[in-house]
Design a protein around this nucleic acid. Structure first.
Length: 230
DNA sequence: AACTGTTGCAACCGCAGACCA
DNA sequence: TTGGTCTGCGGTTGCAACAGT
């Protein structure tokens, strides 16, 4: 059966965008807003496919984009988020205001990969390069009525005593919370329960941090409850 | 100055999931 | 329920700019 092409390829431009095309796209979106990418090129008088217009807008023309070099804080945040989320660039971008998934993906492949390699860290697994390869990692949970919850992984068993640690349900259906917040990324976010954003990523504690039940990255555990994903 | 190799990034491609009739 | 369409995502490619010889 096959899918119909997203546009009439014979009559569309490809390759780098010209200033005039950019101006047309910006003017159209300012007047009509984003969306309906398929019909946008024709309506805007552009000989481009809708996907191309969307990409150009999202990755380059959007007014809220932060151009320029990544900061050291952004670097570390990307590394942390990548260790949690893998190549989910759009989710990672959601945590970095003004950055796009494409930009972060490129930055990862050109800079951060090399940076991690030079530190002796495998950019895929985030584990030391010379470490014995782990064919798979099993995390097992054990809870009996009269005992504390035990979590076993990598040959070690950790005992979690109630009521300090309660994991009523192991919900692996991850979800991401609203991506962008105006507060600085490192500033702890006060929550009624759970962890501040810094602790959830294993970043250094700030003086305001009140978190006490952090099972941090250093101990080998990730608290997925605090990195809400969709 | 000319050539070659490398790097960085914008843009493209194909796929999967959401949505709708 | 099914099939068509649209949108968004992640991997990959192409090319200009730069560095090295």
């Amino acid at each position: 059966m096959g899918r119909s092409p997203c546009c009439e390829k014979a009559h569309t431009n490809k390759g780098a965008w010209t200033k005039e095309e950019d101006d047309r796209l910006i003017a159209y979106i300012r007047a009509h807003g984003e969306g309906c990418w398929r019909s946008l090129p024709k309506a805007a008088g552009l000989l481009r496919c809708g996907k191309s217009c969307r990409l150009r807008w999202i990755n380059y023309l959007r007014p809220d984009l932060k151009r320029g070099n990544f900061t050291e804080e952004e670097d570390e945040l990307i590394i942390k988020l990548h260790s949690l989320l893998g190549n989910k660039w759009s989710l990672i971008a959601g945590r970095l205001p003004g950055r796009t998934d494409n930009e972060i993906k490129n930055y990862w492949n050109t800079h951060i990969r090399r940076k991690l390699m030079s530190r002796g860290v495998d950019p895929v697994t985030h584990r030391p390069i010379n470490e014995q390869p782990q064919s798979n990692i099993t995390i097992s949970f054990e809870k009996r009525d009269d005992e504390d919850l035990k979590i076993s992984t990598l040959g070690e068993t950790f005992k979690l005593q109630e009521p300090q640690f309660k994991i009523p349900d192991l919900n692996l259906e991850l979800c991401i919370s609203p991506p962008f917040q105006e507060e600085p990324l490192i500033k702890p976010v006060k929550r009624e329960a759970g962890l501040c954003f810094s602790c959830s990523l294993g970043l250094p504690k700030s003086p305001d941090c009140k978190c006490t039940n952090f099972i941090g990255l250093s101990s080998g555990f990730l608290d997925f409850r605090s990195v809400e994903m969709k």
